[in-house]
């Protein structure tokens, strides 16, 4: 493939987007970087949820209203959804072989991911500014 001397495409053009051109690994890299960020963030979230076990609405909404929780939870959900969309995309690509279904799922996955993040942020802001 590379180095085909009969090709009208330049060597650079053939290499762009492939690993050796230091591009084309966005998906792989994004999955790893989000994984790395999620080690502290997800541990914080789960620890916070455990500490709020059995708490009533007043306690939980007060926790959710603090600027730190608002920022950290928003960030955690954003990166979690990004990580989940990348992961589910690979699962769909690996196991769904029927063409219309596969394409529809690959379109819906990032769209629903963005919708989910927006819904979460709107909810967080509503809780924070409700008083």
């Amino acid at each position: 493939m590379a180095g085909n001397s009969n090709s009208l495409r330049s060597r650079l053009g053939q290499a762009r987007g492939l690993g050796s051109a230091h591009e084309g690994v966005h998906h792989w890299w994004g999955q790893r970087m989000s994984a790395l960020a999620l080690i502290p963030l997800s541990l914080w979230l789960v620890a916070s949820l455990v500490c709020n076990a059995g708490a009533d609405y007043a306690v939980v909404s007060q926790w959710l209203s603090s600027p730190f929780t608002l920022g950290a939870l928003g960030l955690t959900i954003l990166i979690t959804v990004y990580h989940a969309v990348l992961g589910l995309q690979v699962v769909v690509e690996d196991y769904i072989h029927g063409q219309p279904t596969k394409l529809i799922l690959l379109i819906l996955l990032p769209m629903s991911g963005v919708a989910l993040v927006v819904a979460a942020i709107v909810s967080l802001l509503m809780i924070a500014f409700a008083g």
């Binding site: 959710l64 959900i77 979690t80 959804v81 989940a84 589910l88 819904a119 909810s123």
Partner: peptide, 22 residues
């Protein structure tokens, strides 16, 4: 992979929890 798929559903449930709180 299985736990990753399950946790994606868990994120949806977390959103439900936030929506309910909102």
């Amino acid at each position: 992979r299985f736990t990753g798929i399950g946790l994606s559903a868990g994120v949806l449930y977390l959103l439900c929890w936030l929506l309910a709180a909102a």
